[in-house]
Structures are given as C-alpha cells and as structure tokens.
C-alpha cells in the first residue's frame, strides 16, 4: 500500500521527464539562426559572456540530439537562442551608444568653435 502513491509519483515524473519529446529540429534551426545573427552584428564569444553561453549550450543541444535526449536538447537550444539574442541586442545597444558619443563629441566641438567665434 505504501508504494502506490510513490509509484504514481514516479510515473508522473517519468511522464514529465521523457514523455516522448519530439526531436526539436525547428528549435535548433532557430538557435543556429540567432547565433548567426549575433555574429553578423559583431558579437564574439571572447567579449560576450552571453554569446559564450549560447555557443556552449548549442553544442550541448547538438550532443543531446545525437543522444536522442530531445527534451534536454530543446531546453539547451531554447536557452541558447535567447542567450544569443541578448548578446546581439547588447552589441546593438553598445553601437547606438557609440553613435551618441560621436554626436556628442561633434556637438562639443561645434560649441567650442562657436564660442571662439564670439570671442573674436
């Protein structure tokens, strides 16, 4: 009698754990695309911890695919996709900030020149 609830619980875990997850090929494609996009805007794993995470998780997802651990593969790939998208977004934010800095430098220079002109 004592084993029945435990067995039931185990069954639930088993169902949740390996209930025939389909192979997440579409998710892996999406993740690969996200990684490519991040690289395209100039993100590199040496500078971006997020991209490094993404690459590592994607490698693990591919290994999980080979092992037919499809649930693990999907989770790794899903996380890797968002890691890569975050890495991409961070690069774009930095670039937009750099553009602002360039504009600010130009404005400062213009102001200085205008003041010089007035002083003359």
């Amino acid at each position: 009698m004592i084993f029945r609830p435990l067995l039931a619980a185990l069954a639930v875990v088993a169902l949740a754990g390996c209930a025939a997850d389909p192979a997440p090929t579409e998710q892996l494609r999406l993740t690969r695309q996200a990684l490519e996009q991040a690289s395209a805007v100039g993100a590199v794993a040496e500078e971006s911890a997020e991209l490094k995470l993404a690459e590592d998780k994607f490698a693990r997802a591919e290994a999980d695919m080979a092992d037919q651990s499809y649930k693990d593969a999907r989770m790794q790939a899903e996380q890797a996709e968002l890691d890569a998208r975050l890495a991409e977004a961070q690069v774009l934010t930095r670039k937009s900030q750099e553009q602002l800095n360039v504009l600010n430098t130009r404005i400062t220079r213009l102001r200085k020149q205008l003041q010089l002109g007035e002083a003359q």
Binding site: Q79, L82, D83, R85, L86, A89, L92, T93, S96, L100
Partner: peptide
C-alpha cells in the same frame, strides 16, 4: 529573465535612437 533583459536592451536602443 532573458526576455526581460532583451526588452531592456531593445528599450535602450530605442531611447538612444530618440536621443540620437
């Protein structure tokens, strides 16, 4: 959490575009 972080980055980009 990743989506929240991405949202913040996209917001910063949008704000920077306006500032720009």
């Amino acid at each position: 959490r990743r989506y929240s972080a991405i949202a913040r980055e996209h917001t910063e980009q949008g704000l920077n575009a306006e500032r720009g």
